[in-house]
Amino acid sequence: MARLRRTPPHDLDPEARALYDQITSGPRGTFMVDAEGGLTGPFNAMLLSPPVGDPLQELGAAIRYRSSLTDRARELAVLVVAGHQDSAFERAAHEPIARDLGFTEEQLQALRDGSPLALPDPAEAAVLAVTRALVAKGDLDDEEYAALGERELFELTTLVGYYTTLALQLRVFRV
């Protein structure tokens, strides 16, 4: 049972309404809006504190739409975090994107349960190994650190932290 009521946009205070409008007018569009106009997923909670919610959603937009990570690398990493955090919402939101990018059901299952996954693309295999190390131990050894360029590594660690934060909020608010 959800703990947080979804507030329709006409019931939001001006600051929360401005954030609502920013989220729904951006690249996410109305994907995260329910039939009554309330925000779903992690975005509903962001309306509780627009001064914190706005930079948080902007960080997510930067990770999703403006980082140097490939779409497949990004979705791979998001689904590793979702599997590690057992975040059903993040899996439900990102598995269709991954399917559209060519991930198979077998690969998605391995990302859900953390089982071994051989990826033919060496760059994707490196993202998988590094992301799994980050969620498992919160650090990298020298070999894992060297597997990616520093910019990609910075963006990937930011992605892991962002989606871990969302998984925590989704769990606490029972989304």
Rank of each mutant, 00 (worst) to 15 (best):
L134D: 05
L117N: 08
L39R: 01
F89A: 11
M32N: 15
F103Y: 09
L148I: 12
T24K: 03
V52N: 07
L119D: 06
L108N: 00
V175Y: 11
S49E: 10
R6Q: 10
R74V: 08
T104W: 01
L76S: 06
E36Q: 14
R5C: 13
S67F: 02
Q107W: 03
D100H: 14
A18E: 06
L19N: 05
D86P: 08
L47A: 01
V130I: 00
D141A: 11
R99W: 09
A167D: 10
P27W: 13
A118W: 10
E124F: 05
A93R: 09
Y162W: 10
Y65F: 15
P122W: 09
R99H: 04
Q22Y: 13
G26A: 08
L170D: 05
V52W: 11
R28A: 09
V130Q: 02
P120S: 07
L166C: 02
D71E: 15
V33S: 06
L39S: 06
R151A: 13
F89D: 03
L166V: 00
V130K: 08
R17I: 01
P8T: 03
A61D: 14
A123R: 11
G37S: 09
A45R: 02
D139L: 12
E106F: 09
D141V: 12
A110Q: 09
G26V: 05
D86S: 13
G138E: 05
R17P: 03
A93F: 07
R132S: 08
S25P: 05
V127E: 01
R112C: 05
A126C: 03
T157H: 14
A126V: 04
D13R: 11
Y163I: 03
T40L: 15
D141I: 11
L166Y: 07
A93D: 00
A73F: 02
L134K: 04
P14W: 01
G41C: 03
R64G: 02
A62T: 13
E155T: 10
F31Y: 13
D113K: 10
G53H: 00
H94M: 07
R17T: 00
V33C: 05
R99T: 07
L48C: 08
S25C: 04
D142Y: 12
S115C: 04
Q107I: 10
L156S: 01
D34Y: 08
M1W: 13
H10E: 15
L47C: 04
E95W: 02
L19D: 07
L148T: 00
L48T: 09
R132F: 07
R5L: 15
S68C: 12
A136W: 11
L153N: 01
F43R: 05
T40Q: 15
